[in-house]
Simulated assay, not measured.
Amino acid sequence: MASMPFSTLCLFKKPNYLTVRYAPSNQFRFSSYSTLRFGATQRRRKIGITVCRVASVAFRDLDADDFRHPLDQQNTVILRAIPGLNELGKALLGTVAEQVMLLENIGTSVLVSKNQLPGLHDLMVEAANILNVDAPDLYVRQSPVPNAYTLAISGKRPFVVVHTSLVELLTREELQAVLAHELGHLKCDHGVWLTYANILTLGAYSVPGIGGLIAQTLEEQLFRWLRAAELTCDRAALLVAQDPKVVISVLMKLAGGCPSMADQLNVDAFLEQARSYDKASSSPVGWYIRNAQTRQLSHPLPVLRAREIDEWSRSPAYKSLLKRGTLINSLQNV
């Protein structure tokens, strides 16, 4: 899931090796070894890669506008009306920025493939198949801050980055929903505008001659558009997960979850919290505070995203899309 939760889910060193906790059967596992802890003792045990189909249908004729959020449509029109925006973006995100971002990820992350973290690779390929979009390169990066984001620079092959702490926090189904969220950005051709926003949230102010100019001229409008685009990509996550509680659980965990408390979190209670936020912000003063609170954010508040995806999951538009889907076979354990 482009950063405060997803894709940005949220931007968020551990030792230079990857440790993945033992996962129950309903969780994603991509390490060939895990550490099992029993009181003061621990032992290492080899475990297999388990990949099971979460969704039941794929969308062979899916168009981005089939699931694009109305606010995304509105703000895209506004951005396109800004004279020279695309040209400015290509100039700003030229050779220097491209090399900074590409080398940063290639040099400090692990590139996922059939032979490297194959379970994670399978989740990405499967999600791309469901949404009928080409799978981008995928990197795993050490970070204590749960996050995933997408970058597509100068017409090069786009890539998605997932932080290790996000993998540890989420179940297999939830992690695939995050990957689907990122694929939603590519499906909707969010392209260069998404890269603007991600470079801002990733600290582009430190890139000489680039960050400052973007921040001064485009930040507010870009973040308004990005908040709307995130709502669209949450829908892409739902199209792959095909269970709103999976997507809402991701948002809840990003808002206040950790591996040790994951089994105590309650999606229904989080939705009730979202409704209470709507009620508390319905007054004139509440409305003003709510807008002031979100204006400089790159992502909508998690409770608002949860409420949005819950409502869309019950809409005729979503149900109609599911009926259009093509049944797919489940992947077997590998």
Rank of each mutant, 00 (worst) to 15 (best):
Gln176Phe: 09
Gln73Asp: 01
Ser282Lys: 06
Leu238Lys: 09
Lys323Trp: 05
Arg324Tyr: 09
Gly119Phe: 15
Leu301His: 14
Val192Trp: 01
Ala280Cys: 09
Tyr149Pro: 03
Glu168Arg: 03
Leu239Pro: 00
Tyr139Asp: 00
Arg60Glu: 13
Asp134Ala: 14
Phe38Ala: 05
Thr294Glu: 05
Tyr318Pro: 00
Pro316Cys: 07
His163Arg: 15
Leu183Arg: 07
Gln273Ile: 01
Ala255Met: 02
Leu123Arg: 06
Arg141Ile: 12
Arg43Ser: 00
Asp268Ile: 11
Leu138Gly: 06
Thr41Phe: 15
His299Pro: 12
Val167Arg: 07
Val57Trp: 11
Ser25Ala: 11
Gln99Trp: 03
Ala58Ile: 05
Phe270Leu: 00
Cys52Lys: 02
Ala97Gln: 08
Arg295Glu: 08
Val207Ala: 01
Ala306Ile: 01
Ile289Ala: 14
Ala269Trp: 05
Leu88Phe: 08
Gly211Gln: 12
Phe270Pro: 07
Gly39Glu: 06
Gly209Gln: 06
Asn266His: 02
Gly84Met: 07
Ser32His: 12
Asn333Val: 07
Ala135Gly: 11
Ala228Val: 02
Gln142Asn: 10
Ser320Phe: 04
Val250Asp: 02
Cys258Val: 07
Leu120His: 07
Val51Ala: 03
Gly209Phe: 08
Gly191Thr: 06
Leu79Val: 03
Ser313Thr: 07
Glu219Ala: 15
Ala262Val: 10
Leu218Pro: 04
Leu226Ala: 09
His299Trp: 11
Leu169Ile: 02
Lys156Asp: 03
Leu327Glu: 10
Leu117Gln: 07
Leu322Thr: 05
Gly94Ile: 09
Asp234Gly: 10
Thr326Lys: 12
Glu311His: 10
Leu170Ser: 02
Gln176Asp: 13
Gln27Val: 10
Leu131Met: 02
Arg324Trp: 02
His163Phe: 06
Ser260Thr: 13
Gly84Arg: 13
Leu93Tyr: 05
Glu219Met: 13
